[in-house]
Nucleic acid binder design. Structure first.
Length: 274
DNA sequence: GACGCTGTTCTATT
DNA sequence: GAATAGAACAGCGT
């Protein structure tokens, strides 16, 4: 589920539903999801009020006054709000019980998700956040983005690299490259100034539209708090192997690029020029 | 039953 | 460095 638009959708849902609640206790059933010492984590988080929800790249930030709790959903993390005392289901690994009779359950079939709590004043120094590249939405099309696209790696790998741009994952990388009409294996370095701008422009437009639609729910997953993303209907190449390209009717191909399943149109996204 | 996928990212190896 | 393979884990389809 979660790339930037999905994480942003979760952030908004949590902001609507749990902002202002106070965390009475935290139950952790799978300690390795917590970065650092578990007791330290609980000491930092318990008793604090959720003042607001923020996001950086694919990280959710629970702002608890003087403490920030980072939550990364990785592949399949989801949140559900339930009455306090509801027994955790099989794949629910962390439960935040609030003082008002409700609880937030973290559900993650593959247990890849992570949590980390840090004092607010050291948030800037958290390595996970420090390494992240800029938010695509914050770039100006007039900015010099040459650095982002440097190197010989395929442009697809560059878009997936969170230190270059934050928040893009496998679905949106494919959609952005189709929008920009660039072959996913083309080395980043070979993009001229016009193509670099086109990639940023496509990234901003596609991510914004996906946020508007509440993200995508590819496969049969539902989004947090029971909300369904609608953007998967707008996907033009991702998961569309064998189907006609909406622009030129050529058959969409699937290839393995940088170790990831990659969908593209062989006609719109030629290797040579863009 | 085995194998090869899956929206992520970190670590070890080449 | 930089690119790639493997690992963390569970489920689903072939």
């Amino acid at each position: 589920m979660p790339e930037l638009p999905e994480v942003e959708t979760v952030r908004r849902a949590l902001e609507r539903t749990i902002k202002g609640r106070s965390i009475e206790s935290v139950a952790v059933f799978h300690p390795r999801m917590i970065q650092g010492d578990l007791e330290h984590f609980r000491n930092l988080v318990e008793g604090r009020r959720i003042e607001r929800l923020s996001r950086r790249g694919k990280y959710l930030l629970f702002i608890l006054g003087e403490v920030a709790m980072l939550s990364h959903l990785r592949m399949e993390g989801k949140y559900y709000l339930k009455p306090a005392g509801t027994p955790p289901e099989k794949h629910e690994h962390v439960v935040f019980t609030f003082t008002d009779g409700w609880a937030l359950h973290y559900h993650d079939v593959r247990k890849f998700g992570t949590f980390e709590a840090v004092p607010m004043h050291s948030l800037e120094d958290v390595p996970a956040l420090k390494k992240l590249g800029p938010e695509p939405a914050e770039l100006d099309l007039r900015d010099d983005v040459t650095e982002i696209f440097r190197g010989e790696r395929p442009i697809k790998a560059i878009l997936l690299d969170q230190t270059r741009l934050a928040g893009i994952g496998n679905i949106y990388a494919d959609e952005i490259l189709h929008c920009a009409r660039i072959h996913p294996e083309r080395p980043g370095r070979t993009l001229g100034v016009r193509l670099r701008r086109r990639v940023i422009d496509c990234a901003q437009r596609i991510l914004a539209a996906a946020v508007q639609a509440g993200g995508s729910s590819v496969r049969s997953y539902r989004n947090t708090l029971g909300e369904d993303g609608r953007f998967e209907r707008s996907l033009r190449v991702h998961t569309h192997e064998g189907k006609p390209c909406p622009d030129c009717q050529s058959t969409i191909r699937k290839a393995q690029i940088s170790g990831r399943g990659t969908y593209y149109c062989p006609t719109c996204q030629r290797r040579k020029k863009g």
